[in-house]
Design a protein around this nucleic acid. Structure first.
Lengths: 201, 201
DNA sequence: GTCCGATGTTAACGACGGTTCACATCGGGG
DNA sequence: CCCCGATGTGAACCGTCGTTAACATCGGAC
């Protein structure tokens, strides 16, 4: 009955991945490929070499697993974005470049997480979904602040629309995966994203 | 047992929507909100005022319903894109503007379809999924042709990545819905999409 | 008026999948 | 050496859901 809390939902903890994180990683991959609802607990278990019910030694439920995954993503994004903006100095243009670079790197490094995040949020218990949405909103606000300072003549609604559009652009990565070498893909996406974010009217 | 074939999977058929099309429309809405797998046949029935099993007088299965929906979308997109390119004359820049305008209009007019198309393709029987993907690939090729003629120095792989990125940008509409009046949203998305598609390197 | 096809309803079936339970195993600390 | 907590297994439970079956209704064609 005792289920440990995660050491930290944020920590990438790349060193010696605990069973818990092995499961999270494998689940993310499977969820991305087939959709969370289409993946059985047995599938997740099999992916790490155990049977289905063994999962319940590490997570309270399948939903809790998905919830922790999505919250982790949102927290990493939010924390990363704030870091990059702070490190970029006061110039909004530089801040935008930093945000774009960060989002591009994240998307190229974690295509599975990107896919799951915007497809399976809905299959989360309302309470957890709300928590994730709160984090996402704060992430968007980081972008909105930068974009609005960059073009004060546009309202924040337009900045918000621009931010979402840029996310869609960059997160298209999982759909056009692998044809271009990573460095070229990163450069291309960054160029397109900045052009879109700063396009006239 | 007899299930009529659709009058035409392409026809918008806005006039006197047959039960069949009422169902498709309602299902699209529900699928977009909750995800196809999370929506029961009873839900779809209830949305048009009948019970669940009544659906089977109009569709062979829930999967068939989803399949027809997704094929319809892909066919409308492909046909529309070819029309617009043909009508735009020989200039690739004009063709690109036409494609962008078309995609923006479609996304703003059918946010539910956009959502379902790129989230629930995976929950389709492999055969139908393959058919939809073939249509999508042909749609992408229309864009790739135009983009490659516009910037021959880039390879077709880069053009393909650009096309996917523009789709992601424009299809972000369902995520930032409604804050801006439609005309401004359309103008903003079109400007961003063209800027991204034609951005340097 | 009668028959038939189209369309619906309710009840039941069967499969799938998340979850729980009772029981093994195993490694380390007293 | 023994015990216990952590971890895993196979079997069973149970709700949900797609689908089918058997039976009503009703409007138009002849």
């Amino acid at each position: 009955m005792t289920v440990r809390q995660p050491d930290s939902a944020l920590s990438a903890d790349a060193a010696r991945p605990s069973r818990r994180e092995q499961i999270l990683r494998a689940a993310a991959q499977l969820f991305a490929e087939r959709g969370a609802r289409a993946v059985g607990v047995d599938d997740v278990g099999a992916a790490v070499g155990v049977t289905g019910p063994a999962i319940y030694r590490h997570f309270a439920s399948k939903d809790a697993m998905l919830a922790e995954m999505l919250e982790g993503i949102s927290q990493r994004l939010l924390a990363g974005a704030r870091e990059r903006v702070a490190a970029a100095g006061p110039d909004p243009a530089a801040q935008l470049r930093a945000l774009v670079a960060f989002q591009v790197d994240f998307a190229l490094d974690n295509p599975a997480l990107i896919t799951v995040q915007d497809r399976d949020l809905g299959s989360l218990p309302p309470e957890d979904a709300a928590a994730v949405r709160r984090l996402q909103r704060r992430y968007v606000e980081v972008w909105v602040d930068v974009l609005t300072r960059l073009r004060p003549e546009e309202g924040t609604d337009a900045s918000r629309a621009r931010a979402h559009a840029v996310f869609g652009l960059v997160n298209s990565t999982p759909h056009s995966a692998g044809r271009l070498p990573r460095a070229r893909m990163a450069a291309l996406l960054a160029a397109m994203a900045e052009a879109a974010a700063t396009s006239p009217a």
